[in-house]
Simulated assay, not measured.
Amino acid sequence: MTRTDGPILCFGELLLRLSPPGHGPLFRESRLDANFGGAEANVAVALARLGRSSGVISAVPDDVVGDAAIDALRRSGVDVSRIARSDGRLGLYYLAPGAGLRASAIVYDRQNSVFATRAATAYDWPALLAGAARLHLSGINPAIGSAMADICLAAMTAARDRRTGVVRRQLPREHVGEMVCGPSRDPSSARRPCRFVVRQSPRHRIAAAASAGW
């Protein structure tokens, strides 16, 4: 029987978001606002704000940027004890919010981040998932690094073996599936250990943490 007590753990990359003040385009002004987030971190923060115990499994640089990212989660009530530290960089993205007829513009700069280059052997999934009620991860994860597809599959398999429910957020991006699977990987293999698959459409988004930078 799948357990229902314990925290919901969200596995994914923490990112630094740089965006112009207000709703202007990028670089029209000489400053950018900085906030921390990421798809899975957003879910963890939303859950914490709703009164549900949550935590993040990730990796950030062992420097002041990593300190700030962890502090941002901690201030929101998220358990950060499963976030690893190592030398390297934090992934980031530039976001210009849409206004009027202008669509939002986003540019990612996350290649070779600490999270993307972390080895599969660095994750002790039985220990990381101890006491968890659910494991949440998104479909973008496997496309981040060369080993990430296997890491995600190992995480979901370990969760299934421990009777920990798995929620996998499926993104509506065909190219992500191609990046994850490649010519020889079966796309359905990433869903086999899952108990739930959440499909996201443009009209159905998690917005509980949209304010305050998340």
Rank of each mutant, 00 (worst) to 15 (best):
residue 1 M to H: 08
residue 1 M to V: 04
residue 4 T to R: 14
residue 6 G to P: 11
residue 8 I to V: 14
residue 9 L to S: 00
residue 10 C to D: 01
residue 13 E to Q: 07
residue 14 L to P: 06
residue 16 L to A: 15
residue 24 G to Q: 11
residue 28 R to Y: 11
residue 36 F to N: 02
residue 38 G to E: 05
residue 40 E to T: 02
residue 45 V to L: 12
residue 46 A to R: 12
residue 51 G to E: 13
residue 54 S to D: 05
residue 60 V to C: 06
residue 60 V to F: 01
residue 60 V to N: 05
residue 63 D to F: 11
residue 65 V to D: 05
residue 66 G to V: 01
residue 71 D to M: 02
residue 71 D to W: 00
residue 73 L to F: 00
residue 73 L to C: 07
residue 75 R to N: 12
residue 76 S to K: 11
residue 77 G to W: 03
residue 78 V to P: 09
residue 79 D to T: 09
residue 84 A to I: 08
residue 85 R to P: 01
residue 85 R to N: 03
residue 86 S to W: 04
residue 86 S to H: 06
residue 93 Y to E: 04
residue 94 Y to S: 04
residue 96 A to V: 00
residue 103 A to P: 06
residue 108 Y to N: 10
residue 114 V to W: 01
residue 115 F to H: 11
residue 115 F to W: 14
residue 118 R to N: 07
residue 119 A to H: 11
residue 119 A to D: 15
residue 121 T to H: 15
residue 123 Y to K: 08
residue 127 A to C: 07
residue 128 L to N: 06
residue 130 A to E: 12
residue 131 G to S: 07
residue 132 A to K: 14
residue 138 S to I: 13
residue 143 A to E: 05
residue 144 I to V: 15
residue 146 S to D: 14
residue 150 D to M: 03
residue 152 C to I: 07
residue 154 A to W: 04
residue 155 A to G: 03
residue 155 A to L: 02
residue 156 M to C: 09
residue 157 T to Q: 04
residue 158 A to T: 00
residue 162 R to G: 05
residue 164 T to G: 00
residue 167 V to T: 11
residue 170 Q to F: 03
residue 171 L to N: 15
residue 174 E to G: 10
residue 176 V to L: 15
residue 189 S to R: 12
residue 193 P to G: 01
residue 195 R to I: 11
residue 202 P to F: 12
residue 207 A to R: 13
residue 211 S to H: 07
residue 211 S to W: 04
residue 213 G to I: 08
residue 214 W to T: 13
residue 214 W to M: 14
